[in-house]
Every structure is written in structure tokens, then in C-alpha cells.
Amino acid sequence: MIKGLLNIDENLASSIALRYAGQLTDILSMQIQATHVEEPDAKQRSAGTGWVQRTWERGIEEAGMQTVLRLIKTENPNCNFIANPKIFVGDRDDEILEELRKGRYELFVEGNVNTSNVNDFYRLITSPLYSKSPCPMLVLKNLVVPKKGVILVGDGVDPQKLIAQFIKIAKTAKVDFDLVHYKFQENNELVFLDKREGGSYLADTESLLKENGFSVQSSKVICGTPEQAADSFREYGLAITTFPTRRSPRMEMLAHIPTPLILCR
């Protein structure tokens, strides 16, 4: 059973994440620890030290706990929670990174509503939390039923690294996966190419999956603009790929993809 850390804030993205997490713990055989970071602004920061500082922090933590419990109560997810939510006070990215390392989590989960601005996604994946994360990151953009998953390969994807992480996460998964190689091209509509067009990316990934006792339902090569490709993944309830290393059509495609997305390193 894998161990995941779910970040919760009081917003739409977390509402989606909580509801999806209920389904996720079932299909990925996963235990979840909920967390929330209270980030006090400069005005809120206590000027005191010692017990004054600790009392102030306890008050902030208590408020954070109430927020998280209220959200959990509202969404009432059918989640396999490990323990009570962990509340931290401080810088969001730093606190979560520390918890991910200390708790040896195998997956970080959080909601992040899809926007039309690719820069929002770029900022997310280059944030300290995502760029230094010790484990794969699951970005929940929409609430979908994870009936089927997809492994995404393409330019910049290292099949070895991707499949090593995929095996860890999906070893007990109760859903089937497809394998898709994305190629960028300005087309009027999305085109499906012969599997041979996927070259070594597709062949290597298939071999690695086979070596590890996995098989995919289908493998295909798609070709089109990032938006066209992203839109075609709506049939999937979960997508897994590696972090894009630079701004590229693949990064744009991942920015637009509406499906919950696991990014590995």
C-alpha cells in the first residue's frame, strides 16, 4: 500500500482533490495523510518569542485544523486516512517538502484547477515544492472517475525513470492503462499515427512494462497541437508522465490536459 500526502486548502481545487482522493485510495491501494499549511502574512506574525510565539502558533494551527476538518466534513470523502490532518505554520512549500521527506511519502496529492494560461502550470511545476519534490506529484485538475489510466511518453521523457515510478505507484492498481506517445504538429485535428512513428520511446516503454509484468490495453501515437492532444485525454481518469524539463509543446499539452496528472522525476 502506497503512502500519499494530500494537501488541503479551503478552495475549489481542494474540494475536487478530496472527492477524487476517495476514489484514488481505492484504485491505487493507497493510504492518505491530509495536511494543511497556514501561511501567516507579515501583519499576522507574532512579534513575541518563547511561549508567546508558541501560543500564537498553536492558535494558528487550531484555526487551520478547523478549516481542514470543516472541508473534510463537507466533502465526506470515502478516504483511507492514516491519521488526523497534520497542520503546519510557515512557508507552504518548505513545510510540505519537509513533511514529504520526513514521512517518506510515495505520492503528493493536491488539487489545482485548470486554467487557460500555460504560465500558471509552468509556475506550478517550477515552484520550489514541485522542483524539489522527493516523490511523484499528483495534480488533480478535475473530478473524474478513474476507470482507466494513461502513460504518456514523448520528447524529453526517460522511459526508464517513468516506468520505475509507474511500477511503484501502480503495482496494485485496479485500473487498466493505455500507452500514448504525443508528437507535436500543427494539424486541423488530432491524427493517430502508426505505432512505428513512436520510435524508441514507445518500444522501450512497452519492453520495460513487459519486463515488469505489466501490459497496457493499447498503445498509440497521437499527433496534433497541445490543446488537441490534451483534449483527447478526457476519457482517462489518471495520466502519468515525467516532469517536463523545459517549455515545450509537451509541457503545454500537460498544462491543458484536464485529467488528473501524476508527474514523476
Binding site: L12, A13, R19, V113, S116
Partner: peptide, 25 residues
């Protein structure tokens, strides 16, 4: 806006309609 979207999403989810969410500037 998010609160409103959450309510609408719940409305449709309760009716077994999968509503995809997107924010546009």
C-alpha cells in the same frame, strides 16, 4: 468564483454529469 463553481460542479455531479472545470482570465 470558485465557491460558485464548486456548487455548480456538485449540482451536476449529483446528477451523474461529469463537469470539467476551467478558469479563464
Amino acid at each position: 468564483t470558485e465557491k460558485q463553481m464548486a456548487e455548480i460542479q456538485k449540482y451536476y455531479t449529483d446528477r451523474q454529469i461529469n463537469a470539467w472545470i476551467k478558469l479563464v482570465e
